[in-house]
Amino acid sequence: MNEPESAFDRSVRRTQWVLAGLAVLFVTGIVTWIAHLIRTAWRLGDVLSASIGISLVAIPVFLTLGGVIVYVFVGLLTDRSAR
C-alpha cells in the first residue's frame, strides 16, 4: 500500500488541496460579503433590520455548507485506512 508517491500523485494531491482551499475561500468570501453588507447598511442608516434579518438565515446556511465541504474534502483526502 505504501508505495513512494510519484510526481503525478504529488501534483494531483497538491491540486486537490488547492481545490479544497478554493472551496473554503469561496464560502468565507460570501460570509464576509454578507457581513460587509450589514456594515454598509449600518453606516448609511439604511434598513439595518433587513440586513440583519436576512444574514441571520444566510450566514448559518453558508457556514453549514462550508462545514460539509470541509468535512468531505478533509475526510476523503486524509483517509489512510485500508480497503
Partner: peptide
C-alpha cells in the same frame, strides 16, 4: 484530481 483520492474504503463511504 476530482476523485479526491477515493478508494472506496469504509470510512470514505461513511463520509
Amino acid at each position: 484530481v476530482l476523485a479526491l483520492g477515493w478508494r472506496g474504503t469504509e470510512r470514505q463511504w461513511k463520509i
